[in-house]
Amino acid sequence: MRSVVIFVAAFLCCSCSMKSVFSKPVTTVESVEKPSPLFAPSFTKVEIDTLLSEKLSIRALVVDNDKVWYAANNGNYGSISLKDDKRFVGNIQKDTLKIEFRSIAQTKDNIFVLAIGNPGLLYRISKDGKETELVYEEKGEKVFYDAINFWNDNEGIAVGDPTEDCFSLLITRDGGQSWTKTSCESLPKLTEGEAFFAASNTNIIIKGEKTWIVSGGKRSRVFYSEDKGKSWQVIETPIIQGSAMTGIFSADFYNETIGFATGGDYEKPQQNFGNKIITLDGGKNWNKIAENEGFGYGSCAQFVPGSNGNELVTVGASGVYYSYDQGKSWNKIAEYKDLFTLRFIDRKTAIAAGNKKIIRLQFN
């Protein structure tokens, strides 16, 4: 493993004001007049090392205990052990197609990788790497699948751009052995120019039996299901929208109540207004937050585990950003501007991937 450790900043002492990982000064409790019991940073420095450096574009990660699986372009996928650095490298070829995987999910025994474009290809791969099976294929000029996730080891969901007047929705109830496309008669209609972004495999968010799917483009909404995809409600959002490359690119829920979504205008990557929204009522209502502050276009957002829904980390065109107050303020913690996706191992460790790299961030 080629490893680089980057110390962003650290507290120099615990009894005085000091500079930390944050762009805004952070002080100790002794020097804060009225410290908030709700919002406080949980770390003072970030250590970063490189786990993988290859000519790959990686937009999909999944954490499997002490292992990280990734899906990438040109039919590539694989895993890295965080304990002993053991690697598994896989590649899938089909005819003369250039397969680009942007979605990945898992059950207890299998990994699933989903390709964008025509034809839509979904593969089941055993975690020991011995079996690879094409479990779903869909041909059509408009076919483009964006994200995949599982409720449990038997039931899973994948979403894609519309081929008719609704979003494309695949459901499995047998552990991913077979997938069925849901009829448009059972789904909400999409408006012209509304679709999904295959930016970081975070279009689908699952908490228990509840599911949220986020769209973007000329219209950007949230589709909510309380019954594992059998029925859907539609919720409007205030995020910037109206053109093909605007809207929600990523969302995450800390629990069934607190959620955050980001994106913005992909063609104006430094524009930092209208690109962050939050819900505190399970997605029924969304509000803009941190207008003209922090990052611009965001590719992926994730809540920090064990943070009571207060802490968030995002990656995108402006770098790696952190908020400890539910997105009200943001601090840049790393300069990487070519990361696409992020997943937490635990509260102190996250894995991020993007152009030609997978890195590990350790928050101390």
Rank of each mutant, 00 (worst) to 15 (best):
F7W: 06
F7E: 15
F7S: 09
V8R: 13
A10G: 01
A10V: 11
A10N: 09
L12Y: 07
C14W: 12
C14R: 15
S15F: 15
C16Y: 07
C16F: 06
S17L: 10
K19A: 14
S20F: 09
S20T: 14
V21I: 08
V21W: 15
K24D: 13
P25D: 01
P25S: 02
T27H: 08
T27G: 07
T28P: 05
T28W: 14
E30Y: 05
E30T: 12
K34W: 15
P35R: 01
S36N: 12
S36E: 10
P37G: 12
L38S: 09
L38A: 01
F39W: 07
K45G: 10
K45N: 08
V46R: 01
E47A: 06
E47S: 15
I48Q: 03
T50I: 05
L51N: 07
L51D: 00
S53W: 13
S53F: 08
E54S: 03
K55E: 11
K55L: 14
L56D: 05
S57C: 06
S57Q: 08
I58R: 03
R59H: 12
R59W: 12
R59M: 12
A60R: 11
L61D: 00
L61V: 05
V62G: 04
V63P: 02
D64W: 12
N65F: 05
N65I: 06
N65D: 15
N65M: 09
D66W: 04
K67R: 11
K67V: 11
W69Q: 10
A71T: 08
A71W: 06
A71I: 03
A71V: 12
G75L: 01
G75T: 00
N76C: 05
Y77E: 07
Y77Q: 06
G78R: 04
